[in-house]
């Protein structure tokens, strides 16, 4: 039995990934190692096309590495089937994207409640839980609005509410402030810090130096390898 208090939440070694691109192969990850402990706020920085998003997709089980080992919360991910990975995403991981990725035809409240559709044990009071999540990001009043009625900052706060509504152990964010101005960036960072203080680990891919400053650790990715 692994004691997760002292074990890494995320432990990946020798991750490799390559994609075909025309006649050549693109290799965004080459022998990348990463270790994230519970309650940590880790920022990953690097130039465009350096493999940051690919790493995040592998860490969130949306993609599988071609080579290397990855253990999440003590579980060897390579042993899990697609459905088991979906279940893990639904209950343990929250995603935040640069482009917010809210479902345009649903109201804000429906967007926030959506993860419960796929959660193995959704709460009976899912609506109330979703409203609390919206309150945490200051959007309770806008619950019946559709995404296209919100500003960029509001949409990103809503996306964060959707990520935290299932109480995940880690949030994986892909350039969450990339489309936001300085004020909205500060607002998002404030929410991230509160979440982290409440025990949620954060792995944030970013170009933003403010986000990097707020993190406990900053990892740099270059030529598919990670350095601290």
């Amino acid at each position: 039995m692994i004691d997760t208090r002292f074990s890494p939440l995320i432990l990946a070694k020798g991750l490799c990934k390559r994609y075909p691109s025309g006649d050549a192969w693109v290799r965004p990850l080459q022998d990348a190692d990463i270790k994230v402990y519970p309650d940590q706020f880790v920022a990953i920085m690097g130039p465009s096309g350096s493999g940051k998003s690919t790493l995040l997709h592998i860490l969130g089980f949306l993609d599988r590495p071609d080579k290397g080992a990855y253990c999440f919360n003590g579980q060897d991910i390579s042993l899990l089937e697609d459905d088991a990975l979906s279940l893990l995403r639904a209950s343990r991981v929250g995603f935040v994207f640069q482009t917010f990725n809210l479902i345009s035809q649903c109201t804000l409240l429906e967007n926030i409640m959506m993860p419960f559709l796929y959660h193995p044990e959704p709460p009976e009071n899912a609506r109330e839980v979703a409203l609390i999540a919206l309150q945490k990001v200051g959007l309770a009043e806008r619950r019946m609005h559709r995404p296209d009625q919100l500003s960029g900052g509001e949409m990103q706060r809503a996306a964060i509410a959707r990520a935290l509504v299932v109480n995940p152990i880690v949030i994986l964010a892909d350039e969450p402030t990339g489309n936001l101005d300085a004020e909205n960036t500060r607002g998002i960072l404030k929410i991230f810090k509160e979440m982290n203080e409440n025990g949620t680990s954060l792995v944030v891919v970013t170009h933003d130096i403010e986000v990097a400053r707020a993190a406990h650790r900053v990892l740099f990715i270059n030529d598919g390898r990670l350095n601290e």
Partner: peptide, 16 residues
């Protein structure tokens, strides 16, 4: 298509 990706990211299985 993007919506499908979002749903998969928040935990939807193929069957969902």
């Amino acid at each position: 298509t993007r919506e499908i990706g979002i749903r998969r990211a928040i935990g939807a299985k193929r069957q969902h």
